[in-house]
């Protein structure tokens, strides 16, 4: 049996918001260590990998591994009904047909209970071995989201160029070009505002702007985002959770 209680429903709301536009159906795999999701978008370009660790829950028990096949659009309709500050509890039997979603306000004078029908989904797992990256950038997630939104207005592609000194985000469209250059710096007072650039080898990669626009829907999950890049390889975009992570792997575009 699964019983997981969050101190606030806001975490699950943000997680669903972050992934629902990339994938529609996915299995939530529940183990004694927490909840994991791995899912690939329909075009096989973007992969999400989610870990909500046991410590993200106020109370958590999962005696046996349980798979919850969830339609995220439906789940989102229910999850939006809770207030962000409500306790959120997920309950499922060992071989469940549905999952119970319970919201309680902190005064305990209102309890809302919903049941979501589960689906039997083919799990389509990709094996991701530990990848080696040539460059790692950590920066404020809100800044990355703004850069993505701004440059997406010019072009369907977003180029990321990393040199020793800086990282350049660039777009080249029909009516003009744009770029944003960031240098590394340390903000002692607000570490999350810092920009850290680690580069072993220079990087020049191009990505579909619409996929990166989906990735930055994870912005509310974390103050900072880490971007890991390797030549001619998928990039990794990571938002850290209090215990766990939301990772996006994005395949690059290549010159023909």
């Amino acid at each position: 049996m699964l019983e997981g209680k969050f101190e606030e429903s806001s975490l699950m709301k943000k997680v669903v918001d972050a992934i629902k536009d990339s994938v529609k159906l996915c299995n939530f795999n529940c183990t004694e260590h927490g909840v994991t999701v791995q899912a690939v978008d329909d075009s096989r370009v973007l992969l999400i990998s989610l870990l909500i660790g046991e410590a993200s829950f106020e109370e958590y028990r999962c005696d046996r591994n349980i798979t919850l096949g969830i339609d995220l659009e439906s789940f989102n309709k229910i999850i939006k009904n809770g207030n962000s500050s409500d306790f959120l509890t997920l309950i499922a039997e060992d071989s469940p047909d549905n999952v119970l979603i319970i919201f309680e306000d902190k005064k305990k004078d209102r309890v809302s209970e919903y049941s979501l029908k589960l689906m039997d989904l083919d799990s389509d797992f990709l094996q991701i071995d530990d990848m080696e990256f040539d460059a790692t950038i950590t920066m404020p997630s809100s800044e990355f989201a703004k850069i993505t939104r701004d440059l997406k207005t010019l072009s369907e592609s977003l180029q990321i160029i990393v040199t020793k000194e800086n990282v350049k985000f660039s777009s080249d469209g029909d009516f003009g070009t744009g770029n944003v250059v960031l240098k590394g710096f340390v903000d002692m007072d607000k570490p999350d505002e810092s920009i850290k650039i680690d580069m072993a080898r220079p990087i020049n990669l191009t990505f579909g702007a619409k996929y990166i626009a989906d990735i930055v829907k994870g912005t509310s999950l974390s103050e900072s985002v880490t971007i890991k890049l390797a030549d001619k390889s998928p990039a990794l975009f990571e938002y850290k959770l209090p215990s766990g992570f939301l990772r996006f792997y994005l395949a690059p575009k290549f010159d023909e």
């Binding site: 992969l47 290549f254 023909e256």
Partner: peptide, 14 residues
């Protein structure tokens, strides 16, 4: 011109 790569090219299916 650029073409979009697929993740399948990089990650082997189990």
């Amino acid at each position: 011109n650029v073409s979009q790569a697929s993740l399948i090219e990089f990650f082997l299916k189990n």
